[in-house]
Design a protein around this nucleic acid. Sequence first.
DNA 1: ATAAATAAAGACAAGTATATCCTTTTATCT
DNA 2: AGATAAAAGGATATACTTGTCTTTATTTAT
Lengths: 150, 150
Amino acid sequence: MLSKSAEYALRATIYIALKGSVDNKLGIDEIATAIDSPQYFTAKIMQLLTKNNRVVSSVRGPNGGFYLTDAARKLPVRAVLEAVGEDGIITKCVLGLKECSESRPCPMHEQYRSIKVQLKQMFEKTTIQSLAEETGKGKLVINNRLVKKK
Amino acid sequence: MLSKSAEYALRATIYIALKGSVDNKLGIDEIATAIDSPQYFTAKIMQLLTKNNRVVSSVRGPNGGFYLTDAARKLPVRAVLEAVGEDGIITKCVLGLKECSESRPCPMHEQYRSIKVQLKQMFEKTTIQSLAEETGKGKLVINNRLVKKK
DNA sequence: ATAAATAAAGACAAGTATATCCTTTTATCT
DNA sequence: AGATAAAAGGATATACTTGTCTTTATTTAT
Ligand code: FES
Ligand code: FES
């Protein structure tokens, strides 16, 4: 469905939204540990997310790290996918034809049409902030470790 | 969304269902040309589809080629995905967690739940035959060439 | 039986994604 | 100013996917 890059990018962004802030920036080691991802690879992906401050903000040096601005929190999840070059999932044809359109539909287009719309809406109407909020309040998980019992 | 292998497998299978039969077996060169796919690579994929006659049937030698049995025509599209080892799309978590379940939901699970069900149904309720029929009667396309004008 | 056609199988090449490590830059603190 | 902490950037390694080519096995037709 999504590439590893996209998966890590989404998990990392959600974690940063949940635990970080301007005065509590998160280090790459903490992030990678929290979301069960390979640290150095995740660092590379963060570079894509921070390019031009598009999604994630960062500062170097002591007490540096990653955080999200208020504006970034309002971005749709799709922004994360775009940052890692993975938004094909909401644009491409299931059968891999160059174009997906009503005027040139593939055999699965009819069946897929509505699903594609819903995928699109899921990634465009859901904001980073709303995902983080859900995660904060619930029993939602963002890594592969066992859920802690109370 | 899907791998190239899966895309070619689906396009090839649909084409064979549409144009082939026991007494009109299709050669790999014809198939690859028809669906705009690299011939040798497609041949490899056909080997996966014909393993144990799971989806596609084949015979070698003069007048040999690929075709579908009546039983195969009734298979769900999912069978093609399984043959190429690509059915993760209907089983895995969007965020790449090891498990996708109600008891251990990721932050996107709630939003994705219904889409996942629909994807599953699309691949399980649609048969190879029904796709071929749609393709046969309509203006549906299965390659990247321009649609012929009448 | 021999020849020819065709898929199957195997070996390899190229490209892309994933992962790790090392060096450089920048910011902070003393 | 100097030391230190942290991300950014670059170089490299590994694995997987995609694509090509050659050889082998099998079937059919002559
Ligand atoms: S043309 Fe294939 S999904 Fe739209
Ligand atoms: S747990 Fe992530 S989609 Fe179900």
